[in-house]
Write a protein that binds this DNA or RNA. Structure first.
Lengths: 342, 342
DNA sequence: CGTGTTTGCTAATTCGTATTGTCAAGACCT
DNA sequence: AGGTCTTGACAATACGAATTAGCAAACACG
């Protein structure tokens, strides 16, 4: 016993009847490319009838016949993370501007495969994937639809990405320039390409500076504030303690900062912290977080535009290719290494 | 020149052909209530064929004939606000468990009417609205579909809500108990019911305690951290200055806290701050934020379950009615009023 | 052996829109 | 007047699954 939709739907047939024409004529007038040959009078009559009846097209029926749904999927691991919230928000905005709806999927740390199936069943026009293990998904699942990957290895599918390796390198260089030599890293073990690249850029920059570090300075922790805090606590147990930490993202960094303050350590006097993303919150903690600014909204916006262009058969234009640049923003959580005169 | 979907879709007809039966039989086996009378052998043959062809039903076609899309809409003003992100996240989780997709709409401070039209065209099964001005939308728009409102006036449509009035009252009582008498409020002017109720509960509690306040202690600001910061700055210009501030939500409170620290004011020594929501971040700023805990995830989860039960024609069960309780969590940003001995 | 009943499947139709092909009426030309 | 062109509309059909009605075969029973 389903509850019935309260008001019956107005169809093209209703409009046709009212305007004294046939259903296809209504369809031609209300949907078609302006190529159709319809007399101005008929057109006006149909439009008037449609307005009077408050006709609104049934996009499901349209989807069926056109094999187009004007809907996009987006898969992110966790949009309670402000960075992903920004990405999703900008995707939604662009999609809405272009007349597309957005189906939201939060995959957590599991594979997006499950969601890909669900989206495919709905004849999604395309999907943006910024999720764990996207690169390990069966190619079949991705080949059935239009895909844009965010922050993944350049490969078979188009994508947009930030220069994550540079982000890690800039963080390392910043800390090195402040005289730090014992520098730790906190980041997750999961297969998120941008995280991996940040880490790689970081280690490479250290190696280039001739700094090598004990394995205890690499702490694996989930990309959440709580885990960042716990990770920082474990670093305090070490001897010698690191004088600086690069965290894989700002949420982790804020957790780490919290741990330092709770432990009575002075930031940046005793220990420097650098995050990554530059979420809004970075400027609201005290001291303000030194971080690498990553253009989240531009990332999402580009992904959406690239996907929509692909769907509509246009050239990708300027939306493909280049790594989006990132830049370190020095704020209050980084400073000279303790005992360093430079 | 559209790009064609790479791999052709497997339909019930394909499965039927492979299994040596007719299309309707396949449909009966793969979709219907188990009422259908199909011999076990035929059933097995069809299921096998479906698996071999990796059949996945076209939900668009199913939607068209059933007038059901197994998709929900959710409209929020801003999901970069962690509170709404929590709501959306919990809605998405429940929806996914029950086999529904979620269409995300970020309405900003504009009316959700525009999105309601777009959702209606997609034969959404129902919509959850937690947005500005939801109560002022034309009833027609809401009557066409199943609706659950979050944090709105109890009225014609079912809804779930938190006890926002109590939230304001608890914040006020907490500050009064600490001896504060000059207490300010920072909150937006927009028509968000929960914000209004928080404000009302707050003023009522003050009035009940015999405290009346100058109008300058009511500061209008958007519900963002940046605006919270600016609002707090304006409070510093007053003489006499308030000794405590209740902020309409945590994001604003964190902005206000930042302004205090930047101005060199001691929190809670010089000024106490109380927020509302208890987002994760509340425990990550220093000092940790005193706030009123609002069960965002439960709110979203209940809304989703209530909506799905309505759609499926079941009784609302326990998901309707009661205001979700809120409770003040005293942390580090609130303390005795300056000069108060109590 | 005929009649009634059940079982197991299929033919035909529906949902609402898009699209192709067709066809009548008028315009235009020789 | 007879023919070709153009214009403007419509009839027919497709999209993929669901659903109703109905048909044939198998079975039961007197």
């Amino acid at each position: 016993m389903q509850k019935r939709a309260p008001s019956p739907r107005v169809t093209t047939r209703d409009v046709a009847e009212r305007a004294g024409v046939s259903q296809p004529t209504v369809s031609l007038v209300l949907s078609q490319n302006p190529t159709a040959r319809i007399s101005p009078e008929t057109r006006a009559r149909i439009i008037k009838a449609a307005e009077e009846l408050r006709y609104s097209p049934n996009l499901v029926a349209r989807s069926l016949v056109r094999s187009r749904s004007y809907a996009l999927g987006i898969i992110v691991p966790d949009f309670r993370n402000p960075f992903f919230a920004d990405v999703v928000s900008s995707v939604e905005r662009v999609a809405a501007e272009e007349g597309y709806a957005v189906l939201l999927c939060e995959a957590g740390e599991s594979s997006p495969a499950k969601y890909l199936d669900a989206l495919h069943a709905r004849i999604i026009d395309g999907v943006i994937i910024d999720a764990v293990g996207a690169s390990s998904v069966h190619a079949d699942l991705l080949d059935r639809t239009n895909v844009v990957l965010i922050d993944q290895l350049p490969g078979r599918w188009p994508g947009v990405a930030t220069d994550a390796e540079s982000a890690g390198a800039q963080a390392a260089d910043h800390l090195i320039a402040f005289g730090h030599r014992r520098i730790a890293f906190i980041g997750p073990a999961i297969d998120v390409h941008s995280f991996r690249m940040r880490e790689r850029g970081f280690w490479n920059a250290l190696r280039a500076a001739g700094i090598s570090l004990p394995s205890e300075y690499l702490v694996r922790a989930n990309a959440t504030a709580l885990d960042g805090r716990a990770a920082m606590r474990s670093l305090f147990a070490l001897d010698p303690r690191p004088t600086a930490v690069f965290c894989v993202n700002d949420v982790v960094a804020i957790g780490a900062l919290k741990a330092c303050i709770a432990a009575g350590a002075h930031v940046p006097g005793d220990i420097s912290i650098v995050g990554c993303d530059d979420i809004e919150l970075a400027q609201l903690v005290t001291p303000e977080l030194t971080t690498v600014k990553v253009p989240a909204r531009e990332l999402g916006g580009r992904a959406a535009r690239l996907l929509i262009r692909t769907i509509e058969g246009k050239a990708p234009g300027k939306y493909l290719g280049r790594l989006l640049p990132v830049v370190l923003v020095a704020r209050g959580t980084s400073g000279p290494a303790p005992g360093d005169r430079s």
